[in-house]
Nucleic acid binder design. Structure first.
Lengths: 209, 209
DNA sequence: CCCAGTCCTGGCCAGATGGCCAGGTCGCTT
DNA sequence: AAGCGACCTGGCCATCTGGCCAGGACTGGG
């Protein structure tokens, strides 16, 4: 049991900040496993191996926990999965590989997507947190833009539209595919959809001069 | 006050089924206005102008209310907004008009989308309801397929791919756009995204022989 | 050794929630 | 009128929630 080990290791002599961190991570684990509504202060503390009292020693309120959670990147971005680009291959194929790779990292942790969605909805009702989802959105967009530009350089292509426009479209495709996937849970269909959009989006690419 | 009027009108002599219906509608109203978590049995009954006891007279449990809610179409489909198709105009433009019209009906009631999203997530955790989101998805798909076929006939075009494939892509675009819109709340950006995809999807269309 | 400051905890609280039920009311048949 | 079955209700309950706090435990500096 990792939690038990963690408990024993970190039981005492922890700074309040460190505990805050532990609790934040524990909250995310509970939310992924049992859903956002199940992440009560008690459940979170139990997951972190702390007594209930510890929660309000580290956080003024539960809202503060939500804020801390949305401030961290919930969706881990394993950029390690950099797809290999072959300048000789047609752009369509390269784009397909790129989108597929990105999709795999998204689909690898669908529960994180669910949590992010729920948390976003929750934050939108809380005036103090209502700005965070937009921030998260811009972050994703920036990451995709960077990836698209790297791709363009390596595959020796350029985009017919502004890169940010293409990125917005890519994000839209991923968001939509994720939503639908959560409903039907059909991995194959999701992959096919991504592939089809790759073909379509290839229309926005041409060999660099 | 409409609720008071409703109350007075429908106060007594109602069949259990009618009350079920009233409560279901009231629940949807509360969820749209205050969020799904705020839709407690008490809040729902208050919205419907009924005493709390009425709830468990009509529903065995709250889960049954969720089921009833997901069984009905949450997203009202005002098919009245049939866009005018001009066979003379280029398919791209016709497709753009079609998607825009559809998008407007979606974006007209964003709270319904939020509720649907949250409810879907909730249902996925409940084994008894886990099938409903997929059902909902198939329903949407079917509606889009029908619309696409009508469009093809009126605009005298045909699709290069299976209509269901095109529909899945359209649904993906709408889902994604909705999700992103919920985060950034930028009407213009959403519309532009839809327009851009219309151009892209026009690549899957050719004049009918 | 002591002391001050931080860390830490179990227990308590008020409020809300889903669910249940004894008993009242109403309209319809006989 | 009498009864009967469906309709309806207010109040009660166990449980759980976020939040609070008095006081114990530990550590490092003097």
């Amino acid at each position: 049991m990792e939690s038990a080990e963690t408990t024993r290791t970190a039981r005492r002599n922890l700074s309040a900040a460190a505990r805050r961190d532990l609790l934040t991570q524990a909250a995310l684990r509970v939310m992924k496993r049992d859903g956002v509504p199940a992440a009560t202060t008690r459940a979170i503390c139990a997951e972190a191996g702390m007594p209930h009292g510890a929660f309000h020693y580290c956080f003024r309120s539960k809202r503060e926990l939500y804020a801390a959670l949305l401030a961290t990147d919930i969706t881990v971005a394993p950029n390690a999965a950099r797809p290999v680009v072959d300048p000789g291959a047609p752009p369509v194929e390269n784009l397909r590989v790129l989108l597929r790779a990105h999709w795999e990292t998204v689909a690898a942790d669908p529960d994180a997507q669910r949590v992010l969605t729920d948390l976003t909805g929750l934050a939108l009702r809380e005036p103090a947190l209502s700005g965070l989802p937009a921030r998260e959105h811009r972050g994703h967009l920036a990451r995709i833009v960077a990836e698209l530009e790297r791709f363009a350089a390596e595959a020796r292509v350029e985009y017919l539209r502004d890169t940010s426009e293409v990125a917005e479209m890519v994000l839209t495709v991923f968001s939509g595919t994720t939503t639908l996937w959560l409903a039907h849970r059909d991995d194959g269909a999701a992959r096919e959809t991504v592939d089809r959009f790759a073909v379509l989006l290839a229309g926005l690419v041409r060999p660099a001069l």
